[in-house]
Nucleic acid binder design. Structure first.
Length: 308
DNA sequence: AACAAGAGCAACCGCGTATGC
DNA sequence: TGCATACGCGGTTGCTCTTGT
């Protein structure tokens, strides 16, 4: 990258990628820059980022423009807190694919790989740190699988139950969240997340059924069961939202949220004797167990501790 | 009220891959 | 086929905001 800061020494990323000599801007984008980029893309479309940057009169690299557009300016980018459903999805998909952020992001409409990556690094890794174990360790993965994810499911279901009283209410959704609970599914045991329906970049309906067990989670060795659990997309709901249903034929494709979780989470025999450092959990100022102020992190209560 | 530490997030960097000539 | 260019991904950095002292 031939930017202000330094040179490009990448063999493949040659100077053409970055070589826009002169006074390239770096750092935070200004409102004016954003405006120019949005206007230019609205007129000319995306792609050819270097020429786009020049055409828009931006003193930025094409790379920078692309990143700004994809991560911030795109109209379908969702801002705000990661919802419970999204947390669950991230945990599940990460256990399946690891740090394949963009792949994970494909299943969280409106979320960017950068956002998911940041979420993982700040929230999930924080918990691992509090547990004094590596985020990639079996110990922590099991903790996620047997404690965190079921807890998320419980909370999602609780939210769904709460909304059954007022079906129009959203589920754990920030103000900008377009998700809503379909009336027809409330009270059926399924929590159905309606499509986001943003710019046609939609993934259809996602469902949380009440049949999750750690054993059929993708974190288990034969994790292909995860993909096999994908339920068909509801055309009815698609019609309801008047948006085309994504008919992705990619074998890796998973409808967002289509992970089945059980409300009856029973730990495998001896699991809790495998060295989970619950003392450390309690010791870390109860942040891990009791949450740290952020309700999205508040997974545990005293009953859980005693249960454990 | 002032300062320090930590958390969260936007942006940058380097590299691998895809595409076009 | 080889090279140049463009794109996209994952890792990292550094700025800003929040919280604690």
């Amino acid at each position: 990258m031939m930017d202000v800061k330094g040179s490009s020494n990448s063999s493949s990323t040659t100077q053409s990628d970055e070589e826009m000599t002169g006074d390239l801007r770096r750092g935070p984008w200004t409102v004016e820059e954003d405006f120019n980029l949005i206007n230019y893309i609205a007129t000319h479309g995306e792609g050819r980022w270097n020429s786009l940057a020049r055409g828009a009169g931006l003193k930025r690299t094409g790379k920078s423009c692309r990143l700004r557009w994809l991560n911030y300016l795109r109209p379908d980018v969702r801002r705000g807190n990661i919802t419970l459903e999204e947390q669950l999805m991230i945990l599940e998909l990460h256990s399946r694919w690891g740090n394949r952020w963009s792949k994970i992001a494909q299943h969280l409409p409106g979320r960017t790989d950068n956002e998911i990556k940041n979420y993982w690094r700040t929230r999930v890794q924080k918990h691992a740190k509090q547990l004094k174990c590596d985020v990639n360790s079996k110990q922590f993965k099991d903790t996620m699988r047997y404690l965190w994810m079921p807890r998320l499911v419980e909370r999602i279901q609780a939210a769904a139950s709460a909304t059954s009283a007022s079906p129009a209410a959203t589920v754990s959704a920030p103000a900008t969240d377009h998700r809503s609970v379909s009336n027809s599914d409330v009270g059926t045991g399924n929590l159905v997340m309606a499509p986001h329906g943003v710019n046609g970049n939609d993934f259809g309906v996602s469902q949380f059924t009440q049949s999750y067990t750690p054993e059929n989670s993708s974190t288990v060795a034969s994790s292909d069961s995860f993909a096999a659990q994908v339920s068909p997309v509801s055309d009815l709901t698609a019609d309801y939202n008047n948006i085309p249903v994504n008919r992705n034929t990619n074998p890796d494709y998973i409808q967002p949220g289509q992970v089945s979780y059980s409300e009856s989470m029973i730990s495998p025999p001896g699991f809790f004797n495998h060295g989970l450092d619950f003392q450390a959990m309690e010791h870390s100022n109860n942040q891990w167990l009791m949450g740290s102020g952020d309700t999205s992190d508040n997974m545990w209560n005293l009953e859980d501790i005693w249960f454990i």
